[in-house]
Each structure stands twice: as structure tokens, then as C-alpha cells.
Design a protein around this nucleic acid. Structure first.
Lengths: 316, 316
DNA sequence: AGTGTTTGTCTAATACCTGTCTAAGAATCT
DNA sequence: AGATTCTTAGACAGGTATTAGACAAACACT
């Protein structure tokens, strides 16, 4: 934390704390009187002054009481204990407790899944587009698109989602990602990236997300879609004078062929063109892929920071 | 800042400061007397002369007190502390609002302006759409759309931008905002807002931004465009069973008519429907508008936090 | 069911904070 | 010169705090 000590100075009056915590002034005083839940300092006149920390504590307390905890039990606990409790509660709710799931992103993900379950493709699309525009591309990809795809995938694996539903949802996500890619059609000079999926790999969502990420970073992206033979990939990269080539790998099955394809691609590309490999199965083939001259990227986040370092054009 | 020192010279009399801050002269004097909130220099005759800095300080103080801070506590704080407090408040309000005045927002603004100067409407539109999708709606409105509109306005005022260029840019911004509004077409139940501009007020950009802001917050927005007579506004609000009505006011000229229109609107609306007034000229008519039963909102940010508090549906 | 605890809400009396107003005089403007 | 705006100092009222205590709904446990 880079906060100077002034951050801790108590200076928030009751009404503001009430607004920021969602607790009425009455409740704030009752909690303090009965459980010494916080002990704000006072003005000379005796009015309460809460600190930033008090507010954080109170907000957590409210969320926990909302979830059913008794304030009387919660009150004596130190802050880190509250944090632990809340994390536990969230984890219990959430399947895979992603990063700090915001209200609104949670809502978007759940709405999309609900709509998918009732085959309402239009609604899925609306929800996703809205989320994309509201959150901005990077946050959308990390916090909405990825979880939606993952949860649909899980549901399909465990049978709670039918193949048809999975296909529909996938088609919609693909459409939305395609739309985003279109928004970023670049006119001027920029770094160029070619994105595809190696032969036999038919899941293109990962590749599309990579493409959109790069486009959002200002790259000129040539998206070639799934299942592309190395020779054609190399040809496209040469023709577009690409600065980098990205491949998405979802299945580890058929690894030998895959590695061979990587090797062939690497061999066909100029030395200074980076070859990036990502996707669900990328970790399983990491060593072999790196031996074949590819860079393995685990997450979209990693991809973004890598691509930023790569950018010679320094496009803003 | 490129302002020469003359900008710091105190030269603003009370009346003007009152208009620019939305504080009555009485309040200005009371704050000074009781808390030495600022210490304006005086004319030989003893009348107050405020500096640009004083005004900034006062505006911040007003916004913070509006949010619930106590003026008595705020008064002794230095300016940077006020800025910090305001940022903290914004951060607490805004969920994903990354207000990092990024390289990329600057770049978007500059590109849009350059494109406007060379009459490249398509490019302006592309840049704006891309920025909207990249940053998310709230950040886009605050950091791109608003600056672009302001700078075009300034340019027009000082002659560096032609009327034609101004018109073109305005048309494009309007188109993009309209597109965003379309993205947010809401299906389910939601809070309803009616947005328009009072008679004689032909600049609709502010109204559109308000509309988009509300839509992004999950409201169902009925956008009625500029120059709407009170009777029709009231009719629309009733038919849509709106929870709130927002008006944007850019010129202070014709204030009496404007206030009359506000009064009429207020009279026609049910008690529990909020009447909000914002826009460049809103501070100048603050007192009269409030007397007419309207709530004055200074910034888009303020509008967002207000609307969130208003939302009875608590739509996420 | 009965009993006791927990907890949010409310009241009443009091005190503080803060916006508004008054009155009389001085400065400024036209 | 007269109208207007600004000045100071003080008064005032209403909103917002404060306390202590009462009450009832919700819950847990016989």
C-alpha cells in the first residue's frame, strides 16, 4: 500500500458512512453501543468520525450479516477474520472463485447462462454485448466471456447442459467476439498478428479471444479461424508481414502431430517473428512446445502483457 | 498546466464565483467567516476577489459536502487532500470505473479531434466506437466523449474549428451515443427514466450522455431528444410510468422561461418522480431550479451516483 | 406451545452544525 | 445621485447529531 498515514485519519461523518455501507445511522449506533463494532473518534462536539478502515469493516459486516451471520458473533472478530469468512462464503457460492467477482460481472455471467439454458440466443447475445460495452474489452474477456465458456464447458461435461445448448452458446460467443474484432478494424500502420488454431483443433473460442485482445491493444489482427495447416499459416504470416503468430490449443490429444505442426510453423517463419501458443492444453505441452521454438502463454492476461512488450510500433 | 501566472491573479467577484460554484454569496461568506475555507484578496474598497484556485477549491468542497462530508471537517484540509477524498469517493461509488487517465484515452481524444479537423467522419466514428468498447461506457463518457465535445466546443468558440467541422463531429458523437443507447435496450422490468432537453435548448449531447449513463446502469431509458415542451415531457413520463425525468440545460440564456418550464414540468409530475437537471448551465440556474422543485446535478459522475440511490428496483 | 435472546426500528430530549436572514453602512456602477 | 451590490456582525431556525431507553419481530431452544 502506498497510502500515506493521512489515509487512516478518521473524517467520515455518519450520514456518509450510512450511504457507503448501506446501514442506517440507527443501526450504526446500535451496533456500536451494543457490540463496540467500531469505535469512531469524535469531534469536539461529540459527533462520530469514522475512518476509512471503519468503513471497510462495516461494509464487510453488512455483507456477512446479509448472508446470515449474526452480528453479535461477528462483532468481536478482527478484520482479517472477517475477510477469511467472506472468502469462504464466496467460495461456497461460486464454483471456481475467479478473481474479485464484481456484482455486475456476476450478474452478466449468470444471465447469459440462464438464457443459454432456455435456448434464448438473442438474450445471450444481448447480455454479452451489453457486458462488453459496459466493462470494456479486457474486463469482458477475463470476467465474462471466459467464465461463460468455462461454465458451459463444465455443464456439458457433467451433463447439466445439452450439446445443443453448448453449441448455441458457443455460436453466440463466437458472434460477439467476431463483432468486437470488427470494431477494431485498424486503418493505419500497426503491429500485425496472425491468429489460428492448429490442425485437428476445432475449438476456436480461445483463438478468437486472443485475436480480440490483440486488436484491443491496437494490433492489426488477421484471424484465420480453426484447423489450419502449418503451410498455410506460414504463408499468411509472410504475406501480411506479421510480427507475431498466435496459436490456440485446447486438446492435448494428438500431441506428437501438434508438436510437429509447431516445429514446421516455426521453421517456416522468419527468426524475428514470435510464435505464441496458448489455450487450455498449452501447459500440458509446455516443454515440448518450447523445445519446438514456441513461447507458451498461460492466460489472456499474460498474453496481453507479452504482446505489449513485443509491440515494436509502440502503438498506443 | 500552460496557464501563465496571470491566471492565478485573483479577479473574480462574489457574484461570479457564486454562479461558477453553485454556492450562494451568503454561504461563501459564512464558510469564510466560520472556517476560513478560502481567503480571497480584497479590492481597496474591501470587496472579495477570488482566484481561479479558490474557485476550484470551492467547487470541490461543494461536491464533497453534497456527498455528505461536513464542511466544518473539510475546511482545514489542503487541496490535494480534497482531491484524494473525492477520488476515494468516486472509487467507492464506481464499480469497475478505472479512472486511470490512461495514455489510451488521451490518444483516443486526440485521434478523434485530428480526424474531425480533416473531416474524416468515418474515422471519428471508428475511434469513438473503439474507445467505447475498450474502456466501457462510464469511462468512455467521462474520459473521451466529454473531452471531445468540450474541446470541439472550445475550438469553435476560438475559431480554430469551423462550424461545419463542429457540426460533423457533433453528428458523429450523437450517432455513437445513439448506438450505445441501442445496445442497452432493456427487456425485463427496470427503473424507467425519461430524458429530454427543455424548449429552446437545442444541444442534445448532454442529454444523450445522461441517457446512455442511465441505460448502462440498467435503467430503461426513453430518450425524447431536444427542445421538448413541458406538457409533452410530462405526458411521456406518465405514459412510461417513469421513476425519474432528466433534463439537460446548456445555455443559461432565457432563464425565466426555462424556470417556468421546470416549474410546469414539476407540477405535472407525480410527487415521487424525481426531476433532475444537469448540463453546462445547470450551476448558473441552480438556486432557481431547486426552488422550482428540481434537483441539480453537476457532473455525469454525480448523476450516476444519484441515479443509483434512486433505483427502487435495485436492478444490478 | 412457551421462554429467552438477538436485533432492527423507533421515540424523546438535547445539543451541534450549518444555511439563511437581517440591518446598517460602504463600495461600485451607470 | 441613485440604484445596486457588497460588507460585517449577529441572530435564528431547521436539519442532523447525540443519548438512553422501549418495543416488537425473528429466531433458538426447551
Amino acid at each position: 500500500m502506498n497510502e500515506p498515514s493521512c489515509f487512516r485519519l478518521p473524517r467520515y461523518p455518519v450520514r456518509l458512512v450510512s450511504l457507503r455501507t448501506g446501514l442506517t445511522p440507527h443501526v450504526l449506533r446500535a451496533w456500536e453501543r451494543r457490540y463496540q463494532v467500531v469505535t469512531p473518534t469524535r469531534t469536539e462536539g461529540g459527533q462520530r468520525l469514522y475512518s476509512e478502515l471503519d468503513i471497510e469493516r462495516l461494509r464487510r459486516l453488512r455483507r456477512l450479516t446479509d448472508r446470515g451471520h449474526a452480528i453479535g458473533r461477528l462483532a468481536p472478530l478482527p478484520l482479517d477474520e472477517l475477510i477469511r469468512l467472506e472468502d469462504a462464503a464466496v467460495e461456497a457460492d461460486e464454483r471456481p472463485g475467479e478473481l474479485a467477482h464484481d456484482e455486475s460481472t456476476r450478474f452478466a455471467v449468470e444471465s447469459a447462462l440462464r438464457a443459454a439454458r432456455r435456448f434464448d440466443a438473442a438474450e445471450v447475445q444481448t447480455v454479452l454485448e451489453r457486458a462488453a460495452v459496459t466493462l470494456g474489452v479486457p474486463a469482458f474477456l477475463d470476467q465474462v466471456a471466459t467464465p461463460v465458456v468455462e461454465r458451459i464447458g463444465h455443464g456439458w461435461a457433467e451433463g447439466s447442459v445439452s450439446i445443443a445448448q453448448e453449441h448455441m452458446a458457443t455460436a453466440v460467443v463466437r458472434r460477439v467476439l467476431g463483432w468486437l474484432l470488427g470494431v477494431y478494424e485498424v486503418s493505419g500502420p500497426a503491429d500485425r498478428l496472425v491468429v489460428a488454431t492448429p490442425p485437428r483443433q476445432v475449438h476456436e473460442l480461445g483463438a478468437l479471444m486472443v485475436a480480440v485482445s490483440a486488436a484491443a491493444e491496437g494490433w492489426k489482427v488477421t484471424y484465420l479461424g480453426p484447423d489450419l495447416p502449418p503451410a498455410d499459416l506460414v504463408g499468411a504470416a509472410r504475406q501480411t508481414e506479421a510480427n507475431a503468430v498466435a496459436l490456440s490449443v485446447v486438446y492435448a490429444a494428438g500431441t506428437p502431430d501438434l508438436i510437429a505442426a509447431l516445429r514446421e510453423t516455426r521453421a517456416g517463419l522468419p527468426r524475428d517473428v514470435a510464435l505464441l501458443v496458448g489455450g487450455a492444453a498449452s501447459l500440458q505441452i509446455k516443454q515440448q512446445a518450447e523445445a519446438a521454438g514456441a513461447q507458451v502463454v498461460d492466460t489472456l492476461l499474460e498474453f496481453r502483457s507479452l504482446i505489449r512488450r513485443l509491440a515494436p510500433e509502440k502503438a498506443p
